[in-house]
Amino acid sequence: MMIEAKNLWKRYGDNVVLEQINLQVAEREFITMVGTSGCGKSTFLKMLLGTESSSSGTLLLDGKPISTEPGPDRGIVFQQYSVFPHMTVLENVVAAKAFQRRGITGYLFGSAKAAARKEAGDILQQVGLSHALDRYPHELSGGMKQRLAIAQALLAKPRILLLDEPFGALDPGIRADMHDLILNLWRQYKLTVFMVTHDLKEGFYLGTRLWVFDKLRHDPQAPNAYGASITYDLSVGQMDASLYQEIDDSLRPIVTGQTVDGLEGTL
């Protein structure tokens, strides 16, 4: 198993975000994570990334505790701010190449620079940005920015690619293009992907495996007393319409007795 979580908990003070997370993930799976906002799916992604650590339990990568700081084995694409605004498209990707070397400055010179530019050009071609090499990120559309962020992440040759609502801010048409792109890259680069999304359809379409984060226990008097865990762990393919509906309903904040009670609890 590549990733393994054993009775993983995450608390902030009295506020329990995640509880009793137990899971195993094999290499080359494409895992999509859905859930209501504040359900801890992003927190779990950050634990994989290394910017958050667990309160108790273990999270293992290849059988060893996962590093508590970000590293080149785990690439990331955020919803925004993923690219460097002061570098052109080409420089953004060349910089990714330069960061892999030991140098102090992070700049490349001579033949190393030429090789990096060549490689950067190739990957930018692949994500469809070869017409925009000399543009700055603020001159790009949202979709182009995310293509650039993905190209950058891939050039570091990560084994795991983490995606934090990467297409959340894009138009539906652009999003479909991005889906094709990410599926192609996932196959070609033999990646293991974890993707947070708020779009259940997207989760089903992209993933080989879908996790739903939700609270199993709920105390209306103390809404933060219990954390979320993974309530559904589905191999995509075993979906049927009624299950889809059930999950979809659980993601939408419908005013039921329970949620109204929950609201009163917070007042």
């Binding site: 590293g71 080149p72 460097f84 992070g106 570091a156």
Partner: peptide, 15 residues
């Protein structure tokens, strides 16, 4: 996010 991104690309502190 930018600092995290740089780290996932392998950047050291001076870089």
């Amino acid at each position: 996010e930018q600092l995290v991104k740089a780290q996932t690309l392998g950047a050291s502190t001076p870089q």
